[in-house]
């Protein structure tokens, strides 16, 4: 499903002394099937943005279109439940949403709310469990008996079981150790490709945005600050620095290298091995001149 924001603004507690503009005149378009990273500081409006994707928030101004669903301030929104069955959201620390007695019931909770048949729920539960890499023997256990990392996987399985077309991920790896982070992100990337999902990843990690996304939107103070492919966005070191964001390390290193050796190795989202070759060539090439 395509996602379109047209001049979207969102204001908390409008017309009170505490009025706070979380989003301001935000416009962008996300093509169906793309993997988009939304990057920005805490308080840049990322969370408010994603709450518009499934109608948890309705814009105070402007239009949000998600597939055939239209969200505006003036019109009463259509069937939000149907929209929410198409947009799965993995919130930050999703393990905090677990509540059922067994893991099986918790994973089936979403589909049940959306009126999926019992036999179908069973099937989806098994699928989702294997997608997140947990054993079926756990199904009868309480989710609260698991380790933190496993609880998170159960919570993610609960969102996957909804079988959404759009998967929204709000810092899904926060608090995990490096291996856990990599496993979870690789899993989402695999699902994204296998099920041709539209994936929206909210992250602080430039490295993850670079590694997984094909489109990047940088938010600053509720406004769109930069947008484009990772290759285009992440080379804008000065612009990013101005809003206290770092460029990915590899971009940083290439820039320092080019500066010091007076070379012009371009950043093309190359692998570390490719970069090593380019550096070697630059050093030798230099010598030949």
């Amino acid at each position: 499903m395509d996602i379109t924001f047209e001049n979207v603004s969102y204001t908390y507690q409008r017309n009170t002394p505490f009025e706070h503009k979380a989003l301001e005149d935000l416009s962008f378009h996300i093509k169906s099937g793309s993997f988009v990273a939304i990057v920005g500081h805490t308080g840049s409006g990322k969370s408010t943005l994603i709450s518009h994707l499934n109608g948890l928030s309705i814009p105070t101004d402007g239009k949000v279109k998600v597939g055939k669903y239209l969200l505006t301030h003036d019109e009463k929104p259509g069937d939000l439940k149907e929209l929410r069955s198409k947009v799965g959201v993995v919130f930050q620390y999703p393990e905090h949403q677990l509540f059922e007695e067994t893991i099986e019931k918790d994973i089936g909770f979403g589909p049940e709310n959306f009126g999926v048949s019992e036999s179908e729920i069973k099937e989806r539960t098994h699928e989702a469990l294997s997608a997140v890499g947990l054993s079926e023997t756990l199904l009868d256990r309480s989710p609260f008996d698991l380790s933190g990392g496993q609880m998170r996987r159960v919570a993610i399985a609960g969102v996957l079981a909804i079988k959404p077309d759009i998967l929204v991920l709000d810092e899904p790896t926060a608090g995990l150790d490096p291996r856990g982070q990599k496993e979870i992100m690789d899993m989402f990337y695999r699902l994204h490709q296998e099920q041709s999902l539209t994936t929206v990843l909210v992250t602080h990690s430039m490295e993850d945005a670079l590694k997984y996304a094909d489109h990047v939107i940088i938010l600053n103070k509720g406004k769109k600050y930069l947008e484009g492919t990772p290759e285009d966005v992440f080379v804008q070191k000065d612009a990013l620095k101005q809003v206290q964001l770092d460029v990915p390390e590899i971009v940083q290193f290439i820039a320092s290298f080019n500066h010091k050796f007076n070379t012009s190795i371009p950043f093309s989202n190359q692998s570390t091995e490719q970069l090593a070759k380019q550096i070697k060539q630059a050093l030798i090439g230099d010598e030949l001149e």
Binding site: L56, R84, F91, H96, Q97, G110, N113, V159
Partner: peptide, 16 residues
């Protein structure tokens, strides 16, 4: 804040 967060998460899972 926590209440708000959890109610959003459950609303996303279809709770009305």
């Amino acid at each position: 804040q926590e209440t708000d967060k959890i109610s959003r998460a459950q609303a996303s899972r279809g709770v009305d």
